[in-house]
Design a binder for these strands. Structure first.
Length: 308
DNA sequence: AAGACGGTCAACCGCACTCCA
DNA sequence: ATGGAGTGCGGTTGACCGTCT
């Protein structure tokens, strides 16, 4: 239905998970030209996808400003309270959560929050799964024991990355773990998807970090303060757009000591700075950049802070 | 050790809506 | 008024992963 006339011109269209190469093509194209008509995007970008798939991939995964990682208690509270009044209006709920997509909110609801609400209200329609062992801290494979935090410090996890391996910093970790220890259900660590597992082959390519500690992502793309960005966002901007470089990976563990700044990730993500290297403004698809105001509710992209 | 099972997530599907000729 | 094109949205699916038996 979507873009049928244009999409029909494609002999066959790929489905399923996006490869890093496809992400790179789509991201570079949209950043450079804006999306315009989505059905024309795959043709112009050289992708064997339909426009709808490109749009979804961009909105849910590639666009700058997305807040990856676990939901904060505040965000969860917002979702639950809004769901009472709005119901399954995921897009409206997501508009109140900068950096979150409707799909993300929806998934989180079905995975965690619905069970929590059902447990609260005494419904046993979907009994919460009881975990015998310690539960996982939501960020970066950091494990916390819900029953005996002291006896199982995060860094003692055998197959999980320690703080020095690039987890979020003790303050953030403790905050998140303690907060989540008060809850019945804890989110599992972020899953590394197939595409991320292929990153190994790129790890030795040129590092494009500049003098100020930011990673440059092409002459007209985004400059990201990687120490303030989340794992996948960082990768997307520094590796995908760049086509290489960025952080080192070893067995899927992100290694970058600068992630240890001890600041609140939620706060940082809300003030994620985005800078274009030149003065180019993206009039087609990035209207808000021109005045430095960008909001996910109106532009589908959360942006805070001015150009430097 | 290996298969079964359940949870999470990205992506797909189909419907509804808006816009425009 | 109507039909096609484009887009938004919510439900569902299937792959992947960790845990359990």
């Amino acid at each position: 239905m979507v873009g049928q006339s244009l999409d029909k011109q494609k002999p066959k269209q790929k489905k399923g998970l996006w490869s890093p190469d496809e992400d790179l093509k789509l991201r570079n194209y949209v950043l450079k030209h804006g999306h315009g008509c989505w059905s024309a995007v795959p043709i112009n970008a050289g992708l064997q996808r339909n426009g709808k798939s490109c749009r979804l991939r961009w909105l849910n995964y590639l666009r700058p400003g997305l807040k990856r990682g676990a939901f904060s208690p505040d965000e969860e509270e917002t979702i639950m309270s809004l769901h009472v009044t709005l119901g399954n209006k995921w897009s409206q709920i997501a508009q109140q959560l900068p950096g979150r997509t409707d799909n993300e909110v929806k998934n989180h609801w079905h995975s965690y929050l619905k069970k929590r609400v059902l447990a609260k209200t005494g419904h046993t329609e979907e009994a919460p799964r009881v975990k015998a062992v310690g539960t996982s801290c939501p960020f970066h494979n950091l494990e916390c024991s819900s029953s005996s935090m002291e006896s199982t410090p995060p860094n003692s996890s055998s197959n999980l990355d320690s703080a020095e391996d690039g987890s979020l910093g003790s303050d953030t970790e403790q905050y998140l773990c303690q907060t989540n220890n008060n809850n019945m259900e804890l989110p599992k660590p972020k899953v590394l998807f197939a595409e991320w597992l292929e990153l190994e082959e790129f790890r030795d390519q040129t590092n494009c970090q500049n003098n100020s500690g930011n990673f440059l992502v092409g002459s007209r793309d985004l400059e990201y303060q990687h120490h303030k960005s989340d794992f996948q966002d960082y990768l997307m901007h520094d590796w995908l757009v760049q086509g290489g470089g960025g952080p080192n990976f070893s067995s899927g563990v992100y290694q970058n000591s600068q992630m240890n700044n001890g600041s609140s990730v939620a706060d940082d993500m809300l003030h994620l700075p985005i800078k274009f290297e030149d003065d180019h403004t993206y009039e087609n698809g990035f209207p808000g950049f021109q005045n430095g105001q960008f909001n996910s509710a109106t532009h589908g992209l959360f942006y805070s802070g001015g150009f430097r």
